[in-house]
Design a protein around this nucleic acid. Structure first.
Lengths: 112, 112
DNA sequence: TTGATATACCTTGCGGTTCAAGGTATATTC
DNA sequence: GAATATACCTTGAACCGCAAGGTATATCAA
């Protein structure tokens, strides 16, 4: 069951990842928890979302990574490249536009 | 080209259609223009988006329609059912949640 | 009268993306 | 020695927005 394709989520994982990684270097598992916290528990993304997006962002040059061994485990830390910062700005302004448009439509007069 | 899967649009057509039709009965072609206007030109949806969504909303009982002949042409007017109003409320609150979560994340401290 | 533009409906196919579920392996705690 | 937490990962399905293309009538201009 578990209704798939929840509304309003397209592009959101990418925006949030870029935003958080713009503030500090982080690894995947950490990002899963950070996103919950940073959105005030409003949005929760599983690892099945996070990892593929991280990989595709690295592939297209928006992120770079470095491996770091910590207490016997390996972490892969990601950070933004110049291209990633540009991508973040673009997504940010896209978001503002859409969000503003929807607000306008929702706030319209209660009745004709 | 024309990058497909534009970010932040999933669920948006459905929300906007339900919102506008909650205010007044309208037909498809009219909705295309109304959406542009209601969102302050921020969002523009083509007929290839509108009609399929109208049909699927009618199929699942959120909308009802009636045909009306006007100046030799036929218009199909849509309006909300009770189920449609419930659906609108649900989508509206989903939107508020996501929108709020993203705002919180974006407004976070500029730097550590 | 013929051609372009606006109105009004519609479908098909592509492509991208989120998500649940499942999989591996090590460290820690009970 | 068993469960839990950490940390990485992939696969497959489902969904859905969009561009492009298709039909037909009314209107207006040349």
């Amino acid at each position: 069951m578990a209704q798939s394709n929840p509304p309003f989520m397209s592009g959101v994982p990418e925006l949030l990842l870029l935003r958080l990684l713009d503030q500090s270097e982080m690894y995947g598992y950490e990002l899963v928890r950070s996103i919950r916290k940073a959105t005030g528990e409003a949005i929760s993304l599983g690892e099945g979302v996070i990892y593929p997006v991280l990989h595709s962002l690295e592939r297209n040059g928006s992120l770079k990574s470095r491996r770091k061994a910590v207490a016997g485990r390996t972490r892969v830390y990601y950070s933004l490249t110049g291209k990633g910062r540009q991508r973040l700005q673009k997504l940010h302004s896209d978001w503002q536009r859409i969000q503003g448009g929807i607000s306008t439509a929702l706030e319209a007069p209660i009745h004709a």
